[in-house]
Design a protein around this nucleic acid. Structure first.
Lengths: 132, 132
DNA sequence: TCAAACCATCACATTGATGTGAAGGTCAAA
DNA sequence: TTTGACCTTCACATCAATGTGATGGTTTGA
């Protein structure tokens, strides 16, 4: 598919698809006229990239971890230098921290919302009992 | 405590502590000479802010959700306008998405690391059997 | 009392992710 | 064959988070 379709299907501005390419996150083919042409699988890949960006990872890191997330992965064992492994372990730990932080705060929001809701219910109840 | 100590205890540059204040995330007192003075509790608060920033939330959103994460929270019910509730529900959902994305990818990294390790083990084993 | 180590404000720079638009090539349909 | 909807590259702009440094006031200890 061409860039327009990928853009529509992933909800990503064309500008950013080119940017991700520039950052080495995706590598489209080119057809004879110079147009980029994207493999079907890049739809998921782009959404994965967007999710990771939204979760605070910079493209530099995403580029490093992306190749390790594919199966079959035997192909990528060559990347597994000790430095790379250390990087991955470090990023995994940072992601775990992020998950903890997000979970904690999300749960607090949920709790707050529950409290507000039950508060409103009792408001409504007492109002009903005084106005009727 | 003053800004230097808070900076040390949270690992946060002074510049950023002032920035967070400018964004309305923390509100230090001032002593007579104009120096900022921070409550003990702001240590945790700053680390919470940093965690959320690192997890991809912008200060604008952090500012909105922070007041709802405190207990006792009865004080903050006044903030609970319908728009605020909608915002919170929306942010909660986005956080859930982030958590899912991070978890999925972190688990994939873990899986990759496990695969690499077992691969290295079998390398070592076969090398041992051929060289000894 | 003077130096060192704090603090203040202000301002300009940078970086990463994005927005926007110009100038021009390609292609399909009227 | 021309129009409109694609595509290309290039460049400049913006925004949030952060770095850095200038300039100057305050406090503390030798």
């Amino acid at each position: 598919m061409r860039i327009g379709e990928l853009s529509e299907r992933t909800g990503t501005p064309r500008r950013l698809l080119r940017y991700y390419e520039e950052q080495g996150l995706i590598i489209p083919d080119r057809c004879a006229n110079g147009y980029r042409t994207y493999d079907e699988r890049l739809v998921d890949r782009v959404m994965q990239i967007r999710g990771l960006l939204d979760a605070g990872l910079p493209t530099r890191i995403i580029k490093q971890i992306l190749p390790c997330l594919d199966k079959p992965r035997a192909i990528h064992f060559s990347d597994a230098t000790p430095e790379m492994i250390a990087t991955l372990e470090n990023e995994r730990d940072r992601m775990t921290e992020r998950i903890k932080c997000l979970t904690r705060n999300r749960d607090a929001i949920t709790e707050y919302l529950d409290a507000v809701r039950s508060n409103n219910r009792s408001d409504a109840a007492s109002e009903a009992s005084t106005t009727s």
